[in-house]
C-alpha cells in the first residue's frame, strides 16, 4: 500500500470512516503517523469543546467563590476542591460507573423518554468530566486573578462613578482575564495533554475508534517497540502546544494592548504534568 492509500484508508479511522480493520502488518512510519494523527482528532475535539464550555463555567465559579453570599460561595469552593483534589483518572472511572447505572431504557420525564445510552459513550461522558474538571482548575486561576486586581483600578472606577454591572464588565472582568491569562494558557495546554487519559480510564473505545495515545498503544503492543509510536504522539502534542501558545499569545497581546511594554504579562510555560 502506498502512503497515499494508507492515508485514504486510515486518516478518518478514528471517526469510523475508511478501512474497518486496524493495520495488521507492515506498521511502517506512514501507517503510524496517519493512524495516530487520526486519533488526534479526538484529542482536539475534547480539548477545544471542554476549553470553550469550561471557560464560561469557570467564570461563573470564580465569581461565586469570590462573592459574599455563602449559599453561592460554599458550593463553588467544594466543587473546586472536589475536582482539583482528586485525580482526573479516578473522576473518569467514577463518572463512567455512575453513567452506566442510569436506566438503559431511558428516563421518563413528563411523558417524554430521555435516552441515556449516549452518556456512557466517550464523546459525551468524557467531555462532560473534562468540562467540569477544567472549569474547576480555571476557576481557581480566575479567582486568584480576581483577588489580585490592583486596588487603584477599582478606586479609579469608583471615582468615575462606574459601579455594579458596568464596573464588572469594563474594569474587573478584563483585568481578571489579563492577570489570569498566562496561568490559563498553561491550563489549556495541560487540558489537551489530559485528553490522552480518556480511553485509558473507564470509557471504552467504540469499534476501536480511539485517540492518539490509544493507537500509539496499539502499535506499541503489536510491534513491541515503544521507540516509534510514543515519540510520534509526543511530536503531535508539541505541535498542538505550539499552536496553543501562538493563539493564546495573540489573545494575551490583545488583553495587554493598553499597557506600556514593561508592564505586560508574558506567558511562560509552566507544566503541571498530571491532574
Amino acid at each position: 500500500m502506498s502512503c497515499w492509500e494508507t492515508f485514504q484508508a486510515y486518516a478518518l479511522r478514528s471517526l469510523g470512516y475508511g478501512e474497518r480493520l486496524l493495520p495488521r502488518e507492515g506498521y511502517d512510519l506512514c501507517q503510524q503517523f496517519t493512524l495516530i494523527g487520526s486519533g488526534l482528532i479526538w484529542n482536539v475535539y475534547f480539548g477545544v469543546l471542554a476549553l470553550f464550555t469550561g471557560f464560561f463555567l469557570a467564570n461563573a465559579l470564580a465569581l461565586a467563590k469570590a462573592g459574599r453570599n455563602p449559599w453561592l460561595r460554599k458550593p463553588a469552593e467544594w466543587f473546586i476542591f472536589l475536582f482539583r483534589g482528586s485525580p482526573l483518572f479516578i473522576q473518569f472511572f467514577l463518572a463512567y460507573e455512575a453513567l452506566v447505572l442510569l436506566p438503559k431504557a431511558g428516563i421518563e420525564v413528563f411523558g417524554l423518554t430521555v435516552e441515556t445510552a449516549w452518556t456512557t459513550r466517550a464523546w459525551a461522558g468524557a467531555l462532560f468530566v473534562l468540562v467540569l474538571n477544567t472549569a474547576a482548575y480555571s476557576a481557581e486561576i480566575f479567582h486568584g486573578a480576581l483577588k489580585s486586581i490592583p486596588k487603584g483600578d477599582l478606586e479609579a472606577a469608583d471615582a468615575y462613578g462606574i459601579s455594579g454591572w458596568q464596573k464588572f464588565r469594563r474594569i474587573e472582568w478584563p483585568t481578571m482575564l489579563r492577570l489570569g491569562w498566562p496561568a490559563y494558557t498553561n491550563e489549556a495546554i495541560f487540558l489537551f495533554h489530559a485528553t490522552t487519559l480518556v480511553f485509558f480510564s473507564g470509557f471504552p473505545a467504540f469499534q476501536q475508534r480511539g485517540d492518539a495515545l490509544y493507537y500509539a498503544n496499539y502499535f506499541a503492543d503489536k510491534t513491541f517497540n515503544p521507540f516509534i509510536p510514543y515519540p510520534i504522539v509526543g511530536f503531535y502534542f508539541v505541535l498542538i502546544t505550539l499552536a496553543l501558545i501562538w493563539l493564546f499569545g495573540r489573545i494575551n497581546r490583545r488583553l495587554n494592548r493598553h499597557l506600556p511594554s514593561n508592564l505586560k504579562s508574558r506567558i511562560r510555560l509552566r507544566p503541571q504534568l498530571i491532574r
Binding site: A194, L213, A220, P226, G234, F237, V238
Partner: peptide, 19 residues
C-alpha cells in the same frame, strides 16, 4: 521531560526501561 505530555512518558518509560 517537561515538553512531552503526561502519560505518554509513563507508557514509554516502563517498556523502554524494561527492554
Amino acid at each position: 521531560v517537561r515538553g512531552v505530555p503526561d502519560i505518554v512518558f509513563f507508557l514509554f518509560f516502563i517498556i523502554a526501561l524494561d527492554q
